[in-house]
Design a protein around this nucleic acid. Structure first.
Lengths: 164, 164
DNA sequence: CAAAGATAATTGCAAATGCATATTATATTG
DNA sequence: CAATATAATATGCATTTGCAATTATCTTTG
């Protein structure tokens, strides 16, 4: 890594190593996409059987922890594009899993609340999510998990645009 | 954590902690979805300007490292559903970024090869991807990155179905 | 070794997605 | 304080997605 001759160091140290040099198996975004792709796919069948989709499930998951969010904030937390979320919420509302209320201070904005039925749905789903989560970290010691999560938190801080 | 009375311990230790107890900010799949959602979104604009989509980009990325894959294997590596990949490859083929050849041993199967034009496209894209990658790991020391990737590799081993 | 079952890839089709824009409300400014 | 810019959400519309069915080929087994 520090084997470059000094005169070349300053000239072109901006060129990043190629993907082939890093290797797919060492490229964190690749591994993360693979792992999350599988995680989400494993969930999809269970979701479908409950009439849910990924955006609907994520909305319920977030609201089960932080209730009464503004739609725009829910969109960030749930990682769902605004117009997609708008339609997912329509469906959750029609199914009685959430309710909406106009924000007291800004009449453009809407707050979303999870209903008891919504909590029930998420609670029925949770064992399956927790199972996938456990499987993902199988045989990975607690300290290693904790360090992994700590790194993820730093990474989120690095990439996020909104400060939520 | 070890505060449960002994008589309750054996009875219901199968119930996973709730998401609200873990906390969104400590739930690895949530953090990973947030981070990858941002990473992929940051890429989308750049991709669109080059006439690419996420499935097309992932195909080129994988083929730039491992050329001549069978479509079914590319589907696993690129984390793209089969039918979606089939159509993405149609477009890459029409644009001259890949070529297809029937497999020598199995005439049902097709191998996919990246063309020079395809490599060129990916090379033009790579600096932007590398930039996002660098930003993601900003201020995270090398040892920590390496440990993070090592954990990801274990996790992929835990969740993957195909042994590729 | 023929019949049945599995596998590779494509395609029809309904549903989901996301961009651009509309609608309504709030903030800012000359 | 009217005029203009910005913000929150919803919606029109074209594209994309993914399940299921299809076609063609291999593999297995009675």
């Amino acid at each position: 890594m520090n084997q470059m001759r000094p005169e070349t160091l300053a000239v072109e140290d901006t060129a990043p190593p190629r993907l082939g040099e890093i290797g797919l198996a060492n490229f964190a975004p690749y591994l993360m996409n693979r792992i999350m792709g599988r995680y989400n796919e494993d969930l999809r069948e269970e979701l479908a059987s409950m009439g849910l989709t990924i955006p609907k499930m994520r909305s319920l998951a977030v609201l089960s922890v932080i209730d009464g969010l503004l739609i725009r904030d829910l969109s960030v937390y749930a990682v769902v594009e605004q117009s997609t979320l708008s339609r997912a919420l329509d469906q959750l509302l029609a199914d009685g899993l959430i309710r909406k209320a106009p924000d007291a201070e800004d009449s453009r904005a809407t707050r979303v609340f999870i209903t008891d039925a919504g909590r029930g749905s998420f609670e029925r789903l949770w064992p399956s999510m927790a199972g996938n989560y456990a499987k993902m970290f199988q045989d990975i010691p607690d300290v290693e998990r904790a360090q992994f999560v700590a790194t993820l938190q730093k990474m989120l801080g690095n990439v996020r645009r909104h400060n939520i």
